[in-house]
Amino acid sequence: MDLLALADFNLVARYGGFGRAARATGRPKATLSRRVAELEGSLGLRLFERGVRVLKLTQEGRVLHERTGALLTEIDETAAAIASGGDRPRGRLRISAPLLFSQIAMGKLAAGFALKYPEVRLEVTTEDRGVDMIDEGYDLVIRVNPDPDEGLIGRIFLRDRLVVVANPGLIRPAGNVAVPAVVREAGYGVAAWDVKTPTGKSSIAIDPVLCLSSLVMVRDAVRIGVGAGCLPVSLVSRDLAAGTLVRWGDAEGPEIALWTLYPSRRLLSARVSAFLDYLKEAFPMGSPDELAAYVV
Rank of each mutant, 00 (worst) to 15 (best):
L6Q: 03
A7E: 13
D8N: 13
N10R: 08
V12A: 04
V12E: 05
G19S: 12
A21D: 05
S33A: 15
S33Y: 11
A37G: 06
E38I: 03
E40L: 07
E40Y: 10
G44P: 09
G44S: 09
G44N: 09
R46M: 03
R46Y: 00
E49Y: 03
R53Y: 07
R53M: 00
V54D: 10
L55H: 04
L55T: 08
L57G: 07
E60T: 08
H65R: 06
E66S: 12
T68M: 14
G69T: 04
A70G: 13
A70H: 01
L71E: 11
E74I: 08
E74F: 11
I82V: 15
A83P: 01
D87E: 14
R90G: 10
R90N: 08
L93P: 03
R94F: 02
A97R: 01
A97K: 02
L100E: 10
F101G: 01
S102L: 01
Q103R: 13
M106N: 04
A111C: 03
F113Y: 05
A114D: 05
E119H: 14
L122H: 02
E123I: 07
T126R: 06
T126G: 00
E127H: 08
R129K: 10
I134D: 12
I134G: 01
E136I: 06
E136Q: 15
L140M: 11
V141D: 07
I142H: 01
R143F: 07
V144A: 10
D147I: 02
P148R: 13
E150W: 14
L152K: 05
G154D: 06
V163W: 13
A166D: 02
G169W: 08
L170T: 04
L170V: 14
G175T: 06
V177M: 06
V179H: 00
P180R: 03
V182W: 00
Y188V: 13
G189M: 11
V190E: 14
V190R: 15
A191V: 06
T197F: 07
P198T: 04
T199L: 13
T199A: 13
T199P: 00
G200S: 05
G200M: 07
S203P: 00
I206M: 05
D207Q: 10
S213T: 13
V216H: 04
V216E: 14
M217E: 15
V222D: 03
V222N: 04
R223V: 09
I224D: 04
G229L: 12
G229R: 09
C230Q: 08
S234N: 09
V236E: 07
V236S: 04
A241H: 09
A242F: 04
T244G: 05
L245N: 04
L245E: 05
W248C: 02
W248N: 01
G249L: 14
A251E: 15
I256C: 10
L258H: 15
L258S: 06
W259P: 00
W259D: 03
W259T: 02
Y262C: 05
R265M: 10
R266G: 12
L267T: 14
L268N: 04
R271Y: 03
V272Y: 06
S273K: 12
L276T: 03
Y278L: 08
L279H: 04
K280G: 09
E281T: 13
A282P: 02
L291A: 09
L291T: 05
L291I: 11
Y294T: 02
V295D: 02
V296E: 13
